[in-house]
C-alpha cells in the first residue's frame, strides 16, 4: 500500500474542500431550513404526525439524506472530473499507485466532506424540531455507508462524464425524483398500492427508511433489509469502479 499517496490525494481534496467549505455549507443549510419552514411548519400543521412521530421530525432524516446524497455525488464526481478536465490526471496515472489507493483517496475525501455537511444539517434540523436518536450506532453506520457508496457513485459519474453538462445531469435529473419518491416526506403506506410497489425499486427508499428507523424506530421496510441493500449498492459501485480501472475506461487512451 502506498499510504503516502493516499494521504496526499486525501489532503489535496480536503484542502479544496476547505477553500470552498463556506459555499458548500451555506446552500444546504438554507435549503434545509426552507424545507423545515415549508414542509415542517405549513404541512406539519395539518399532517400532525406519522406513526406517532411529529411530521417535522419525521422528515428530518430524509432531508439529511437528501443533502448527503447531493454532497457526496457532487464531491465524488468533481474530484476526479476536474483533473481529467485540466489534464493533471497524468500525474495520478503515472504514479506508483493502484486503483484501490486512488479510490480511497478521492472517495474518502468526498465522503468526509459529505459527512461534515450532513452533520451540520443534522444540527440545523435539531434547531427546528426535537430529534432523538434511538440507535446511534446504526445511525452512524447508515450515515457512513451512504456517504461512501454515493461518493463512489459520484466518482464513477466523474469518470464517465465527457463535459460539465454530463457531470451535472445525473445529480440534477435522477437524484431529486429518487429522493422525493423515496419516502423522505411521507410514509409509503400513504401511497396507492401500485406506487407502493414501484417505490420498492427505488434504492433511496431503503436508505431513508433504514436511516429513519435508527432515529425513531419506524420504517417502511425492515431496517436489516435496508442495510443489506445499502451494502449491496456499495458492492456494485466497487465492482464497477474496479472494472473501470482494469480496462482504463475513459481514463487512458
Amino acid at each position: 500500500m502506498n499510504f503516502e499517496a493516499i494521504k496526499s490525494i486525501y489532503a489535496f481534496e480536503m484542502a479544496r474542500t476547505r477553500r470552498t467549505l463556506m459555499q458548500s455549507v451555506v446552500s444546504p443549510v438554507v435549503s434545509t431550513s426552507l424545507y423545515f419552514i415549508v414542509f415542517g411548519a405549513a404541512i406539519g400543521s395539518r399532517v400532525q404526525e406519522i406513526e406517532g412521530v411529529p411530521y417535522g421530525a419525521f422528515i428530518a432524516p430524509g432531508l439529511i439524506m437528501l443533502t448527503l446524497l447531493n454532497q457526496c455525488i457532487g464531491n465524488g464526481s468533481f474530484g476526479i472530473y476536474f483533473p481529467k478536465f485540466t489534464g493533471t490526471i497524468y500525474e495520478i496515472l503515472s504514479a506508483p499507485i493502484s486503483t484501490a489507493e486512488i479510490v480511497i483517496g478521492y472517495v474518502g475525501a468526498a465522503a468526509t466532506k459529505g459527512l461534515i455537511i450532513g452533520t451540520i444539517i443534522l444540527a440545523t434540523a435539531s434547531l427546528f424540531v426535537d430529534i432523538t436518536i434511538a440507535h446511534p450506532l446504526l445511525m452512524v453506520v447508515f450515515f457512513v455507508l451512504t456517504a461512501v457508496s454515493f461518493s463512489l457513485f459520484g466518482f464513477m459519474i466523474g469518470i464517465w462524464a465527457k463535459d460539465f453538462e454530463q457531470l451535472n445531469i445525473i445529480p440534477m435529473l435522477v437524484i431529486p425524483p429518487l429522493v422525493f419518491l423515496g419516502g423522505s416526506f411521507y410514509s409509503i403506506d400513504m401511497l396507492p398500492p401500485f406506487w407502493q410497489t414501484v417505490s420498492h425499486f427505488n434504492p433511496v427508499l431503503y436508505l431513508v427508511s433504514g436511516f429513519r428507523w435508527s432515529f425513531f424506530e419506524i420504517a417502511d421496510v425492515n431496517p436489516w433489509i435496508s442495510l443489506a441493500i445499502v451494502v449491496a449498492f456499495l458492492g456494485a459501485c466497487l465492482a464497477v469502479t474496479a472494472w473501470i480501472f482494469r480496462t482504463g475506461y475513459k481514463l487512458k487512451n
Binding site: 502506498n2 503516502e4 499517496a5 496526499s8 490525494i9 489532503a11 500525474e91 495520478i92 504514479a95 499507485i97
Partner: peptide, 12 residues
Amino acid sequence: NTVAFSRGLHGR
C-alpha cells in the same frame, strides 16, 4: 504544495 503533492503521490 503542488511539488510536495507529487512527492507524496510517489510514496515518499
